[in-house]
Design a protein around this nucleic acid. Structure first.
Length: 573
RNA sequence: GACUUGGUAGCUCAGCCGGUAGAGCAACUGACUCUUAAUCAGUGGGUCGAGAGUUCGAUCCUCUCCCAGGUCACCA
């Protein structure tokens, strides 16, 4: 694949060659020892100026103000930006001013990584800066970064905002919009604080198969793949629930897993084909215990991220300190529609859906119809953390039947800001009941529900050996992070959200040109001249092409050897 | 999947009734030893997402396709 280089890219490649010609390795191998960071200097210099009489920092050049024999530049490291001040006669104490006049002023660019050694001082306008005494090129950047400028009021000019480019080239996004790094730092805190909490309880972090012969544990369409050696179909997991329960059977009291799940379904601002879930199973507990655990855990996570248990999400201030409101599924529908669906059969539910103008189809059973009413009429009202409990048995083949109410299961979901972020059961451990429930799923599948759960005989066998009473919980980590970082799209909390492949801009490869004898370094020049395929080149006048090559060489100031006229003529043979 | 908005220089965007393109930043040349959206003078840079059609002529009109965003549907 050959994409014609832009003017600026050609110039940077030229700079690269000139650096090498000066004996400067643009990609040195040696460790570069830094002694300070931008953030640390900004935080501490004014209190402890003596500690910063000699610092070594490293980062990317993000802007430059060159004023003859002195310059300012902004250096960005992982912690932030700091200004550096470069005086020609300080970095070039002798007669030879090449390092300043040529290397710094001409051959370095915005985006290059450099290391500088110097002392920290305050400029006349009071900005903390590093007065450079030594400068080392650490890595040359060949593509120009988008330039995002910020003025004194903090206004951003020429912001790099195109979501397509931001997501496809996240490395550029986070370089020029470093404030977005906070989202991912908070994401990491969400996960690590939750993990710490679980570990303190003595629960074991485990890993279970991503490639599964049977996709179970949730209702969703899977990605299918094939294992060559075993010559068998495998699925990327849609859930890990059934494997974690096998581990409870095996004798662990508490197991949890953070991991990617894969669902072959639509993509929108709350769905990505691969997403992160956390599932945990604790033996001898029930869903009431789990509600208390979730409250404690989420309050702790919120405090770890924000310092307080409260987070601002859009217009809503959400308080994660428990206890949370509890509402049964039927009561929640009653509360928000005034309709009591608890005693309705499938026909009456269909009638109710019609009256509420909710679209349904024939494959939907009783549980699914109730879920439709709930989604349409209740969900959006649940802003503060709210447990919805006691679901109809038809919706939930893996949960234990309710201890006192017929037709329900012991399940809760946690809703926050109108979205579900957690799902938990008193887990079904009666192997005969479990087999019957999965058989009902097979009937639903027969009615056309392509998300009905599959039979998993090995899982049933494990239950037959005996699983202690257990409560299990799943949390959608991406959605929790969206809440914790006040983001409305899942793409913003994923480093690399799923995208369609980029279209190849050019159909011709550089090899096509080199195959007819064009030296590799001239291919970009031909592209620049408008010849993107060998056919286009061959259709041109050879003499004109030869002359134009010379013109381009001069125009672009290329220091590459001009091919002999016979060589150029041979391209057209 | 449906509807809708967009795709123009490295980046952010203009571009009138159809006459093959402009600005700011970035880049390049030059000036400048405390600038900070540095400044001043000058210069270059475009397959106007792709293809087809209408037209003497298309960035612009029509159609198809590609990519992205939004809304909805599906989906926890």
């Amino acid at each position: 694949m050959s994409i014609a280089l832009s003017e600026q890219e050609i110039l940077r490649r030229e700079s690269l060659k000139q650096l090498r010609a000066l004996g400067i390795n643009p990609y040195p191998a040696e460790e570069y020892k830094v002694t300070a960071t931008a953030e640390e200097i900004a935080d501490n210099f004014e209190r402890f100026p003596d500690n910063y009489k000699s610092v070594t920092i490293a980062g990317r050049i993000m802007s430059r103000n060159i004023m003859g024999s002195a310059s300012f530049a902004k250096l960005q490291d992982s912690t932030g930006r700091i200004q550096i001040y470069i005086k020609r006669d300080d970095i070039c104490p002798g007669e030879d001013k090449t390092l300043y006049n040529t290397v710094f002023k001409k051959l370095l660019d915005i985006g290059d990584f450099v290391g500088v050694k110097g002392y920290v001082f305050l400029t006349q306008t009071g900005e903390i800066s590093v007065h450079v005494q030594e400068m080392t090129l650490l890595s040359k950047s060949l593509k120009p970064l988008p330039i995002v400028k910020r003025d004194e009021e903090g206004n951003i000019h020429d912001a790099f905002t195109d979501p397509e480019q931001r997501y496809r080239q996240r490395y550029v996004d986070l370089t020029v919009n470093p404030e977005f790094k906070q989202i991912f730092i908070k994401r990491s805190k969400v996960i690590s604080s939750m993990r710490d909490y679980f570990n303190k309880q003595g629960w074991l972090e485990v890993e279970t198969p991503i490639l599964q012969p049977v996709h179970g544990g949730a209702a969703a369409r899977p990605f299918a793949t094939h294992h060559n050696t075993l010559d068998m179909q495998l699925f990327l997991r849609i859930a890990n629930e059934l494997y974690l329960k096998r581990l409870i059977v095996a004798g662990f009291d508490g197991v949890y897993e953070f991991g990617k799940m894969f669902r072959n379904e639509g993509m929108d601002r709350t769905h990505n084909p691969e997403f992160t879930s956390m599932e945990i199973y604790v033996a001898y507990k029930d869903y009431n215990w789990m509600m208390a655990m979730v409250e404690e855990c989420l309050e702790l996570v919120t405090r770890a991220v924000h310092g307080i248990p409260v987070v601002q999400v859009g217009a809503n201030e959400i308080n994660f300190a428990g206890p949370y409101e509890k509402l049964s599924m039927y009561d929640s529908i009653l509360k928000y529609t005034g309709i009591d669906v608890s005693a309705m059969d499938e026909t009456a539910l269909r009638q109710t859906c019609a009256e509420l103008e909710i679209e349904v189809d024939n494959s939907m059973g009783k549980g699914k119809l109730i879920d439709e009413i709930f989604s349409a009429k209740v969900e959006a009202n649940l802003i503060q953390p709210t447990y919805i409990t006691d679901y109809p048995i038809e919706m939930t083949p893996l949960a234990k039947k309710h201890r006192s109410v017929n037709g329900l299961v012991e399940r809760f979901e946690l809703f926050v800001n109108g979205k579900e972020i957690a799902n938990a059961y008193s887990e079904l451990n009666d192997p005969i009941d479990q087999r019957e429930r999965l058989e009902e799923q097979l009937i639903l599948a027969g009615r056309g529900d392509d998300e009905a759960m599959a039979m998993d005989d090995d899982f049933l066998r494990s239950l037959e050996y005996g699983m202690p009473p257990t409560s299990g919980l799943g949390i959608g980590i991406d959605r929790l992070v969206m809440l914790m970082t006040n983001q409305s799209t899942i793409q913003e909390v994923l480093f690399f959200p799923q995208m369609r492949p980029e279209k190849k801009a050019r159909v011709t490869t550089a090899e096509d040109f080199t195959n007819i004898g064009v030296p590799a370094e001239w291919v970009p020049v031909l592209n620049k001249m408008g010849f993107n395929t060998v056919e286009e080149l061959k259709a041109a006048n050879p003499n004109k092409v030869f002359n134009d090559l010379g013109g381009m060489r001069k125009k672009l100031k290329l220091e590459i050897t001009m091919p002999a006229k016979e060589v150029v003529m041979a391209w057209f043979a």
